[in-house]
């Protein structure tokens, strides 16, 4: 326990938050039936991964621009994925599918 408290810092805390978000979003992704809800879960899961990526690396060796740059790329890829999914879902719904 003392080990935990000693080593704990802001970066590590957010890595844990990221892990929790990842796990919760995974559950929501699998259980939700609505496509939009799945998409929201995917986005939050992604944010969880990003928090782990930056939090863990910075816990190990302080502010690091490499994981930050990777996450910036990740955010853009995520918005592209969201937009693509929305285009497909919208088209699907307009063709009579269930959202």
């Amino acid at each position: 326990m003392t080990l935990w408290l000693e080593a704990f810092n802001t970066d590590f805390w957010y890595a844990i938050v990221g892990a929790v978000l990842l796990v919760l979003a995974l559950g929501a992704f699998i259980t939700s039936r609505q496509l939009i809800k799945k998409l929201l879960a995917f986005n939050i899961m992604g944010s969880g991964v990003f928090l782990i990526m930056v939090g863990l690396a910075q816990y190990q060796h302080g502010p690091d621009s490499v994981p930050q740059a990777l996450v910036l790329t990740g955010i853009v890829v995520a918005v592209a994925a969201t937009a693509l999914a929305l285009v497909l879902i919208r088209k699907f719904v307009l063709k009579g599918g269930q959202p």
Partner: peptide
């Protein structure tokens, strides 16, 4: 997390 670039990107894009 000392990542203002990401804060900006998250607010604008995310």
């Amino acid at each position: 997390l000392q990542a203002p670039d990401l804060a900006l990107a998250e607010a604008a894009i995310g």
